[in-house]
Amino acid sequence: MFEARLTSGKILKQLIEALKDLVQEANIDCSDDEISIQAMDNSHVSLVAVSLRSGGFDHFRCDRPLSLGFNATNMGKILKCAGNEDAITLKAEDDGDSLSMVFEGPNQDRIADFGEFARGARGSDSPPGSRREKCWKIDFNFATMRGVGVLVVIFDRKIYELKLMDIDSEQLGIPDTDYKVTIQMPSGEFQRIIRDMQVLGDTLSISCTKEGVKFGVQGDLGTGNVLIRQNAHAEKDEDRVMIEMEEPVELTFALRYLNFFTKATNLGPTVILNMSPDVPIVVEYPIGETGHIKYYLAPKIDE
């Protein structure tokens, strides 16, 4: 049995949004300590790694390790049905073939408001364990959701069942690495740089020197350069730019992938870039005290 309740369900919504353009299918690996996802894009150029620690949930139970294979597009469709203020509970049986997702609105008063209406409403085909007189079940009829699962509404509690699948994903062992350069900067600023640079070309060079971090692109239209300097004493934490450098590093990357990574911008005010010569960059978005989403991107290298 696996059960985990996240008061801030928005995190889960944003996480799936942040990986569904990169990864079609992946496993959610559940253990005592955390839920994690590791998956590569189809062409194995990039890798995404998610970790949400069990301590970040307000309820967490995982009796034995589970791998829940899911389709990211379908999960994204279901999570779109959760409000930004909703708490989300994930539930799975040890040998089940579906993941149950329960969305609860913040306004519990609505339960009373809808009581009479619901009793008189259509059918009362109650799911197991629910309060029979207070719920009803609707098969998915929305065109976009046909066949994805079943929706059960209990007033302001919605229960969705996502069909799970067996996924043979190739898991890469990523060693802990001391990187030569660590840059922390506002995630919104990073997103803007990536968006603007894409106008000019498809390859971005990131160069870190004593001067600061230089983002550069060369294309048919012309060239673009943005220099970010250390600003460790900005008034707000999230405005700070901090650069730790052991030695200068310059690497080049496909902007297409960096652009996918910036879909995680809403998860936090800060992004951390880790670089060493001739190895993948790590683009990390910390998620409060709960965990992180990290993207790894293989560089372009002279052979």
């Binding site: 590569m40 062409s43 194995h44 150029v45 990039s46 890798l47 190739e170 898991q171 890469l172 062992g173 990523i174 060693p175 390859t203 080049t252 496909a254 190895v279 993948p280 790894y296 293989a298 560089p299 372009k300 290298i301 002279d302 052979e303």
Partner: peptide, 14 residues
């Protein structure tokens, strides 16, 4: 033009 590397070139399978 520099060729694009793949993740498998850097990390091995678990």
């Amino acid at each position: 033009k520099k060729p694009q590397m793949r993740m498998d070139s850097f990390f091995s399978l678990k």
